[in-house]
Simulated scan of single mutants.
Amino acid sequence: MPSLVTENPAAPSELAAAHFTKRLSLETDCWDVHETLKSGAQDFILLDVRGPAAFARGHLPGALNLPHGKITERRMVDWPDGTLFVVYCAGPHCNGADRAALRLARIGRPVKLMIGGITGWIDEGFALECET
């Protein structure tokens, strides 16, 4: 009798590779963002899509605050076409980053969601910046 893990066979390698490639084209994680920020080789705009009060209490270093409901084509003209945006919100219990990513994608902007959000960032032991 197969276990709960093996009762559904693993996908063929080609299908698994396509699946995980697609996921990585849509998502990044806290560690990769942190390492990129630390290296000084940031090639994306980091958007905290929570409200201003939450942003002021603590956000990722260098993040810009742009609540997901304020992402519009007109607002995004400040950045050249092709600019990659990495969006995050409070964490896995919040869909603000998904909403932001959807808005950006609908206006033709490249976007990745940072999985884990603030919760994941803190879980990794990384520091937040606070507004003073």
Rank of each mutant, 00 (worst) to 15 (best):
V49F: 01
W31A: 15
A54L: 10
P61F: 08
D48G: 09
A41R: 15
C30L: 06
R57C: 11
W31K: 14
G51N: 12
K38R: 13
R57Y: 11
A56S: 10
G58Q: 05
P61M: 06
C30H: 07
R57V: 07
D43V: 08
T28W: 04
E35T: 13
G62I: 07
C30K: 02
V33R: 00
L64G: 04
V49W: 01
E27M: 12
I45D: 01
I45C: 12
R50A: 03
P61K: 06
H34M: 13
A56Y: 00
A56N: 08
Q42G: 13
S39L: 13
R50G: 04
P52W: 00
T36K: 09
D43Q: 14
D32A: 15
A63P: 01
L60Q: 03
C30Y: 03
V33C: 08
V49K: 01
L64D: 03
D32S: 14
L46Y: 02
P61E: 12
V49L: 02
D29H: 09
F44L: 08
H59G: 02
T36D: 06
Q42K: 12
R50Y: 05
G58I: 03
L37V: 14
D43Y: 04
A63N: 06
T36C: 14
C30D: 01
L64P: 05
P52N: 12
T36W: 10
G51R: 05
L60P: 02
T28G: 09
E35D: 13
D29Q: 06
G58M: 02
T36L: 08
H34F: 14
E27V: 13
A41C: 13
L47C: 07
A54P: 09
F44M: 11
I45N: 00
L46S: 06
H34D: 11
R50D: 00
A53E: 15
W31H: 14
T36Q: 11
T28L: 09
A63G: 00
T28E: 09
L47H: 00
V33G: 01
L60V: 10
W31L: 14
W31P: 11
A63R: 00
V49M: 00
Q42R: 15
V49Y: 04
L64S: 02
G51A: 12
